[in-house]
Nucleic acid binder design. Structure first.
Lengths: 346, 346
DNA sequence: GTGAAAGCGCTAACAA
DNA sequence: TTGTTAGCGCTTTCAC
């Protein structure tokens, strides 16, 4: 039984004190300036109702003593951390990097700090990290969580204020910003069948991914489609490794779970001497920055990655101020036709 | 004059309380279990010297009351945050993403949280963010800081424990993990001249980047080299936009500041119908994941990105425990010859 | 092994 | 406008 399971907290060791031993406190500043601690506090927080002369004395004393207010003490006294947290399954995925960036900028603009944790795709780890992160922040953004709907609903209270990104959990009281995966897949398939393709191979994503489940379900729901499902993953390597299987299965077009596996399969096919899109067409999903620069440039489905981060901040901000989180939104993806798709060979 | 300049702190607003109003405190748990707060504290921290029966009572009470220790109170009482901070100039740069990932995993393994801030390349912003981040953490990793040597030396005390990544600052008492840029450039040039190239174009990086300065200086220091310096940047777009200038200047090979500008120029040249490496050779720097997947695959200089993050954690950990930060290291890059370089046309 | 009590450094009523 | 005072919730000596 681990410490966490026993309900204990992680042991904290190390040299004591963010406060470099001997660092000035508010009391010392007050003393030096000949005022009360309350006055120092007021000055440091920009209260206007302080005698300018006193304020000047306080500021001088603070400067002189190299005074830096203790963040820990403020957190305790205010009951506020000035921090928000983000938990993602995988930091090497461009999708989450975009959310991170968007959130980081928006939060930074508002003077808030950002705590980041990576769950490494493990649902249990994820839940623990999320709780832990939430304890050290005023709010939490959960990106594409791997935990089950149930688990998330059970934890909802302890995680709130909470915003969900790339995922919707029915019955959970948290705003969610997600992608209409089915709509994206529909666009891809319409494009492909319009080009004459009948036999498609789906290069699947990681098994635990809710996005993968939705995309696959959407494909399966399309009537009269000759569909082969190939095991894939979320990385280049997975796509690269699947190139042989793609050729073998005889599909004229491969629908990649995301842009990375699609790029991988692109490279793999080139190595096998299979012309793209001459003999096989390839599509991706997400429109990561690199998708424009593959050879040929990748036909893919564009989703508003950075915007998700920014909007997540807005929702979280509202929640943290006791306001409503607003209606859930599902962004409708846009098909971007580039060079990796072409007519089915006749 | 901004609040920060006046020496004030960011105003914190929002609904009070990470502690969901009515949340159990250590006192309530103590009361419920019929023990003192000290005993609850001992149990929560896994002290072995507690009567098993009492411990069980405490745990039961904690569970019953949904008790979660207040992170803020612990921070104040312990003088420790359980957090380390990372400040990077640009979160969209794969280089820093790798450091983030490496650091995040290493810190996570040690049960520490990670605070991330992006300075957006602005030296003044960077300094403020670094100080702010450091206040909320037990230590700080600064990646490729844009601030001047002077400024960093002046702030050294307030930032310690501090580890520098992708940068060395003489006279600053902080371990640094950096790249031997000159050695990397030397390898590139040797490779290129060995292929018969005499006229090289350097596609420069962002002006504020110390790495760019070093790479450029290294190039300039090489005798008998016909060198054209082209303004670039750190992104695809910059490289893409420079393709025309590359052709015009007549260089037979272009040395990109990093892999992204190099990939950009690759695409640009293809669009202009210039064969690579037939007429122009192209090299990158960093070996980001995508470099293997460009067309042709990019000849580049490999540096240990993820390792920097992991090592940074080790150094920081030592420092936080009052140990020595160890000797500085400069990683020696490795040339990776792939398809984007070839013999000079005769 | 357990409890009492004194902080950690700041903020915020409330009085003056 | 300023100071006094009482916390915020936890940890940790120091007695018992």
């Amino acid at each position: 039984m681990s410490a966490a399971e026993r309900g204990e907290q992680a042991p904290l060791t190390g040299r004591r004190g963010p406060r470099p031993a001997g660092q000035a406190t508010i009391s010392r500043v007050a003393e030096a300036a000949g005022v009360s601690r309350a006055t120092v506090s007021r000055v440091m927080n920009g209260s206007t109702s302080v005698n300018p002369e006193l304020a000047a004395r306080v500021r001088a004393a603070a400067l002189e003593l190299d005074y830096e207010p203790s963040a820990a003490a403020r957190r305790l006294a205010l009951g506020l951390t000035g921090t928000v947290a983000l938990v993602v399954p995988d930091l090497s995925n461009p999708l989450f990097q975009s959310v991170l960036r968007g959130l980081s900028r928006a939060a930074g603009q508002a003077g808030r700090q950002l705590l980041v944790a990576e769950s490494d795709e493990d649902p249990e780890e994820e839940v623990i990290l999320a709780l832990e992160a939430r304890r050290n922040a005023d709010g939490l953004v959960l990106a594409s969580p791997r935990a089950t709907d149930e688990r998330l609903r059970a934890l909802g209270d302890r995680l709130a204020p909470l915003v969900l990104v790339y995922r919707e959990v029915p019955g959970l009281d948290a705003p969610s910003l997600s992608i209409d995966n089915a709509a994206g897949i529909a666009q891809v398939v319409t494009h492909l069948t319009g080009l004459g393709h009948r036999h498609l191979a789906y290069l699947a994503g990681p098994p635990g991914s809710a996005g993968n489940a939705e995309r696959l379900a959407a494909l399966r729901a399309i009537p009269d489609l000759d569909l082969t499902v190939l095991p894939g993953g979320s990385m280049f390597e997975h796509g690269h490794a699947a190139a042989g299987a793609v050729v073998e299965c005889g599909a004229g077009a491969v629908v990649g779970f995301n842009d990375m596996v699609a790029s991988g399969v692109l490279t793999g096919l080139r190595e096998l001497g299979v012309p793209v899109p001459g003999r096989v067409s390839v599509t991706g999903f997400d429109d990561i920055p690199f998708a424009r620069y593959t050879t040929p440039p990748l036909t893919t489905v564009s989703i508003p990655q950075g915007e998700l981060g920014r909007r997540a901040w807005e929702r979280l901000w509202s929640l943290m101020n006791g306001e409503d989180g607003g209606y859930n939104v599902r962004y409708q993806p846009r098909l971007l036709v580039r060079g990796s798709t072409g007519p089915a060979p006749s």
